[in-house]
Nucleic acid binder design. Structure first.
Lengths: 160, 160
DNA sequence: TTAAAACTGTTCAAAAATGAACAGTTCTTT
DNA sequence: AAAGAACTGTTCATTTTTGAACAGTTTTAA
């Protein structure tokens, strides 16, 4: 069936398209992380926690998909560096509550403003998009991410 | 200026949106790689070389942004496994010509068909997009990728 | 033609990321 | 309430990735 084949090619093309963006993003994330003495997981953690100011370590794991050993080590480093506070959840001696310190918030702001940081570079990259293009991109990404999120989260898969 | 602030938020929102897709994609790439006894760099290499059938190792480095030590090791593994052929470029004793072996081509086809592979999962994820949505996504991604590609490739940056 | 500089890929020691085993806690079932 | 199962995070040995030094080749320019 020709149209099936058509669809297959479409999907391949789209996957490549995402991959092309993602490998470039990773390049700048890597660079930004190194320039601020962070590992890539640590950078991810900061960016994930930033809009909420505080999060359970468990939730952070679910959001980032980082293996829990990686998460534990990365968080530890961030706490050492003074960017995060870590304390036991009261009424639950297993879970850890993580929160951005004031230093941490300031640090994130600094990163956002650094020339050559992923944030600055990306800002320029999307500068010329129209309102409509932005909205459609967000909408489509949201749909794809939601689908993927739902996959594999169900069965035997968990962050080990 | 309010509209500047507006733009900033837009950019942040878009970056998050890409990140949400990318972390999910990476999850499946990782999974697909492991299931086929590949490292993530090795998987990237195969997917990059696949449409061309053959490439210079140098070009592969430029396309994937993999550090050259990583590239060298990963390629070596693929050659050992019999998926790639490697030979010196004739008339140039530095560069290496890499090409998919027949076994390698077959291997890639197999991966594409595996249930739960990134390819299958992604296919389902984008199944319901309209023709128009696909085209716009491709177009926008292309623009962003092109911009990012141009950045940093110029000055002191190269794959070490 | 040479010497110096730039290029391409490999090697190897160091750093980063991860799985598996674990320790302590909480929840379930009896 | 006691035993067993499930949960949450840490530790540590192993694996993966990477930067730096290198070896060999080609290009540049003296």
């Amino acid at each position: 069936m020709g149209s099936e084949n058509q669809k297959l090619m479409r999907s391949t093309q789209l996957l490549r398209s995402f991959w092309n963006v993602q490998k470039n993003l990773m390049r700048f994330v890597q660079k930004t992380a190194v320039e601020n003495d962070l590992s890539v997981p640590q950078y991810s953690i900061l960016m994930t926690i930033a809009p909420h100011k505080e999060m359970l370590q468990k939730s952070l794991g679910e959001k980032t998909f980082l293996p829990k050993s990686t998460l534990s080590q990365a968080v530890d480093g961030l706490v050492q560096a003074g960017w995060l506070n870590r304390q036991q959840v009261e009424g639950n001696r297993r879970e850890m509550q993580l929160s951005l310190s004031e230093k941490g918030e300031a640090f994130i702001k600094t990163i956002h403003l650094q020339e050559g940081s992923i944030h600055q570079v990306f800002r320029s990259a999307v500068e010329s998009l129209t309102e409509k293009q932005c909205d459609e991109l967000l909408e489509t990404h949201q749909r794809i991410a939601a689908y993927l999120e739902a996959q594999g989260a169900g069965q035997g898969e968990g962050t080990k």
